[in-house]
Design a protein around this nucleic acid. Structure first.
Length: 917
RNA sequence: GAGGGCGUGGCGGAAUGGCAGACGCAGGAGACUUAAAAUCUCUCGGGCACCAGCCCAUGCGGGUUCGAGUCCCGCCGCCCUCACCA
């Protein structure tokens, strides 16, 4: 295995006269991958020894689409560098891999090509596993699982039931996208311009009873704990904070001037929220299941506002089209019903585009102002009021809210300013065509007059509370997590519906609820639902015929706890305490920014849920988070407007230096388009397999790391890979060609002096610099330092006493580059230490010698008035007087001073001398 | 609309407030070669001088400082997230 021949490349033509030294990556890479596996270099126990420094590195696991893409290559390369580096630094590193294997594409394959989703998925996994293995990742494959394994989703069902028992699961009604032609529920991404992606039918909104996780219960903690995640990117924390969306305000109840017939099932019967005052989450309209007395009447409407201080500027009240009061209006007035129906039709995605215009309908109902005796305001149905937020009703204050201003202007409602901008005159103040939303002094507002905005908010809330007409509350934007999917290829939700007993959890001893294999995809809809036998079971509680829940879980559930399962992937319970207590949290999690909100928030929720059901002892799953940028590529278009794959295009250079592209097939001109994210539709993709065939895994890894900082988008270029390939060969050649002149392995370089000592200084400074760069995720800088190091080794003087220092340098460069180019590092190491059985993957990280980091002399920049005029070389520790004298004596400095008196001398040790004249 | 981020050579980028452009890619010149590939050497922000050297330059305009790519204020441009969230 440690054969260090310098074989000529097999593809060299016979006429070649140079017997080149070449690194044969095609032979070497599989050989070293086998060596790592044979020695189980990356295996760790489920329960690490007490004295071990554990480190858990995890990259977001892939969806098994069938082939890896460059985004995967980048993601897993970054993770592997961290894993290998931390391992060398003496940590016990867990670095697992698995598959996010449930989801719609498998069902689409089944419908389109008649392949069973399970077979399609497992075949894809086999392909992708093989491709990932070719990258040389330091993954412990023994821990691998797929979320579609019954072994995994069965444990997930156990967690689901535990969450249910802990009150973290609820059933409530919710709207779904319904395709009336296909008779199926559509995911949001299957609705294109309001139509079903397959049938083209207009999508309708339909209400179904569905399963929800009570994520809103943790809203305050999910928000507050963001402050403890100091190894998370700020922008991810910010996005989550915005998503959770805490806002302080008040709920205000408005009495209707006359009672309105209808069931007042909303919004009074809301559960109290986590903040004792707040009530986050889905308003769950009409969930009280018809227990209300149908003869009851609405007597009031509750609104949420963040601006209770503007209550005296009110001119109308508006409710959402889905609000019970809107329903009441629709019941008695066909025009209102028509307006409500229209709003519902606009419900989905095009709403966002279409809804520049605010529209409303006056119900004719009126509400009384809480503080103005005898004053009432009209109740409108408005298309810009959201049922899902707050109470689904607002009071309109056009003077100080832009939306209300627009609405009031359109419908001729009163606009009454109540906040006076600083310095404005209350007698003459008028709005200049738009709402005033900044701070100021309250006026026209009775007992609030003269207060500033925050004080007025407090005062009005006190007054509302005293009258029993409102309270100060905290409101949350976050809604409960609906997990029901009307799909086959997902984790079955473990419940049984019994006519007598209601919703009954599947008993633990009947888990897992396995998906049936014999499913029919020729019919639209959920195959679980129309399976002949699967859903018919006996009720676990009364034994009578009952039916299974046919909904399956949102796949975000699968990925919300996989990191915990990796700690003991074959355990009978979802997790084993000793393993998760030892290994969690994940020390470094790496993945795409596209998961900044949902996946990461759901995982944080799940961890809390698992903590509160006794499975875990921590709240935060990911201690460190790193979000990598996308991989981009130029796009190409043929003359007839077709997108072209990069391999169909070749390039020439015009006389003026511009790049020109042609179609390889017929030399027709090709337009070079923008650099953008690789995508199948634009065909600007590069196949990782082809790159590894041509250049090897080390080259691909090296290029990815060297191009730019990992958090930014990178551009994949042919020239860039070729450059990386050249460096791999250069490094190999550097070692192989020096080998004959080196002293035997183990020769110490301690005594080196002169030129040899200089090389040793470079070696040890590079160790320090690369270490620092890797610690801070500055992989492109680490690569640059290794380039410089290689240059220094190549330029080292050819003196007889250089040998030991050069051996040390070459051994060090192999070890420093090993996290990034693991195969080449092993190859070079085995070249230098042919008799040794040790792999670089098993070696500790090199330690710099402090004595060699210290410099004897230092170069100081000499400035005059802040402008550089020269440099001086001084001994480290020279006294200031000497330094100033030397600096002043420098020719060019003299010229710049030009005889003027020096007013001030500044010396920053090791950096700069500056004279002020 | 709200919130956030980023602007440095032809390109990717480097730079604890202290020699701007490390390192690489692309380009140019040369060596080797019958030729090419590979490899090696030199060069490579702009301008003036072309031997030292000088001036300009980190999106634009101000400011703080002995000294600003870096800190502060105001513009301009691009990107991202949420988007009628009351």
């Amino acid at each position: 295995m440690n054969d260090a021949t310098t074989a000529a490349r097999p593809d060299q033509r016979p006429g070649d006269r140079t017997q080149e030294i070449r690194h044969d990556f095609k032979a070497a890479e599989p050989r070293w991958q086998q060596a790592w596996e044979d020695r189980r270099c990356f295996a760790v126990p489920d329960v690490p020894p007490a004295d071990a420094k554990k480190y858990y590195v995890l990259e977001m696991f892939p969806y098994p689409s069938g082939k890896i893409h460059m985004g995967h290559v980048r993601n897993y390369t970054l993770g592997d560098v961290v894993a290998r580096y931390k391992r060398a630094r003496g940590h016990l590193v867990m670095h697992p891999m698995g598959w996010d294997a449930f989801g719609l594409p498998a069902e689409n394959a089944a419908r389109e090509r008649g392949i069973h989703p399970g077979k399609w998925t497992y075949d894809n996994i086999a392909n992708m596993r093989a491709e990932l293995k070719r990258m040389g990742l330091s993954i412990e494959w023994d821990r691998e699982f797929a979320t579609c394994d019954a072994d995994y989703y069965g444990r997930q069902q156990k967690l689901f039931l535990d969450f249910y028992k802990a009150g973290l699961v609820e059933r409530k009604e919710s709207w779904v996208n319904w395709d009336p032609v296909d008779g199926t529920v559509l995911a949001n991404e299957q609705v294109i311009d309001g139509r079903g992606w397959r049938s083209g039918a207009l999508v309708e909104k339909k209400k179904l009873s569905q399963w929800f996780f009570s994520i809103t219960r943790y809203a305050p903690d999910l928000l507050a704990a963001l402050g403890t995640l100091d190894r998370w990117p700020e922008r991810v924390k910010l996005m989550q904070a915005n998503w959770i969306g805490r806002s302080e305000g008040a709920r205000v109840r408005f009495r209707l001037a006359e009672p309105v017939e209808g069931r007042p099932d909303h919004p009074r019967a809301r559960p109290e929220g986590p903040d004792q005052a707040g009530a986050p989450g889905i308003p769950s309209p009409s969930h009280s299941d018809g227990n209300g007395d149908p003869t009851e009447a609405h007597t009031e409407v509750e609104v949420f506002t963040t601006r209770p201080d503007t209550l005296f500027g009110m001119s109308f009240l508006a409710v959402a089209a889905e609000h019970p009061l809107a329903a009441a209006a629709a019941a008695r007035n066909p025009a209102a019903a028509e307006f409500v129906a229209e709003c519902r039709r606009m419900g989905t995605s095009e709403a966002a585009i279409e809804q520049a215009e605010k529209r409303g309908f006056d119900t004719g109902f009126r509400v009384a102002h809480p503080f103005l005796e005898g004053v009432t305001f009209p109740v409108w149905i408005a298309n810009f009021v959201l049922m899902e937020y707050g109470t689904g009703a607002i009071f309109g204050c056009p003077g100080h809210d832009e939306r209300d201003f627009e609405f009031a202007s359109k419908y001729g409602l009163e606009i009454r300013p109540v906040v006076l901008p600083p310095g404005a005159d209350p007698a003459s103040f008028a709005l200049d065509g738009k709402a005033y939303t900044d701070d100021g002094t309250i006026f026209n507002s009775g007992f609030l007059d003269g207060l500033d905005v925050p004080a007025a908010k407090r005062r009005v809330i006190d007054a509302l509370e005293a009258k029993g007409q409102g309270t100060g509350v905290v409101n949350w934007r976050l809604r409960d997590w609906g997990v029901s999917r009307q799909r086959y290829w997902g984790c079955p939700i473990p419940f049984i519906h019994c006519e007598a007993c209601g919703v009954v959890p599947v008993p633990d001893d009947q888990l897992p609820v396995k998906l049936p294999d014999d499913v029919d995809f020729s019919r639209p809809g959920n195959p679980l639902d129309h399976h002949p036998s699967w859903k018919h079971v006996a009720c676990p509680s009364c034994g009578k015929p009952a039916r299974r829940e046919t909904d399956t879980c949102d796949t975000f559930v699968d990925s919300s706890w996989y990191f915990a399962r990796f700690c003991s992937p074959r355990a009978a319970d979802p997790v084993t305490k000793a393993a998760v207590d030892a290994w969690l949290p994940v020390d470094q999690y790496i993945g795409g920014i596209e998961h900044a909100i949902l996946h990461l928030l759901y995982s944080r929720f799940f961890t809390r849920g698992m903590r509160d059901t006794g499975h875990l002892q921590l709240a935060e799953p990911f201690e460190g988070l790193f979000t990598q940028g996308m991989v981009q590529h130029e796009s190409y278009k043929s003359a007839d407007g077709r997108w072209l794959y990069p391999e169909e295009v070749e390039f020439t250079q015009a006389n003026d230096g511009t790049r020109l592209a042609h179609l390889k097939a017929d030399q027709s001109p090709v337009t070079i388009g923008r650099v953008e994210a690789m995508s199948k539709s634009k065909r600007n993709t590069v196949d990782p397999g082809a790159i590894i065939d041509r250049y090897g895994a080390d080259t691909a890894r090296w290029f990815i790391l060297s191009d730019n900082p990992p958090e930014r988008d990178m551009e994949w270029t042919e020239a860039g890979v070729a450059g990386a390939y050249r460096f791999t060969q250069r490094l190999y050649r550097l070692a192989a060609s020096a080998l004959p002149g080196l002293p035997p392995a183990g020769t110490t370089a301690e005594a080196a002096a002169g030129e040899a000592r200089k090389l040793r200084q470079v070696t040890h400074r590079t160790i320090a610099a690369v270490t620092e760069a890797l610690d801070s995720f500055a992989f492109n800088v680490a690569v640059a330092r290794i380039h410089e190091f290689a240059n220094a080794i190549a330029e080292a003087a050819e003196v007889p006493e250089m040998g030991a220092a050069k051996r040390e340098a070459l051994e060090t460069i192999a070890r420093l580059s090993s996290p990034m180019m693991p195969h080449l590092a092993e190859e070079v190491w085995s070249l230098l230490r042919p008799d040794e059985a040790t792999l670089v993957a098993q070696l500790p990280w090199p330690e710099p010698d402090p004595a060699l980091l210290r410099a004897e002399t230092v170069t100081l920049a000499v400035q005059v008035l802040g402008k550089l005029r020269g440099t001086i070389e001084v001994a480290v520790g020279a006294d200031e007087a000497t330094i100033f004298a030397l600096a002043e004596a420098e020719d060019n400095v003299q010229r710049a001073i030009a005889g003027k008196p020096i007013r001030k001398r500044i010396h920053v040790p090791g950096r700069v001398v500056n004279f002020v004249v």
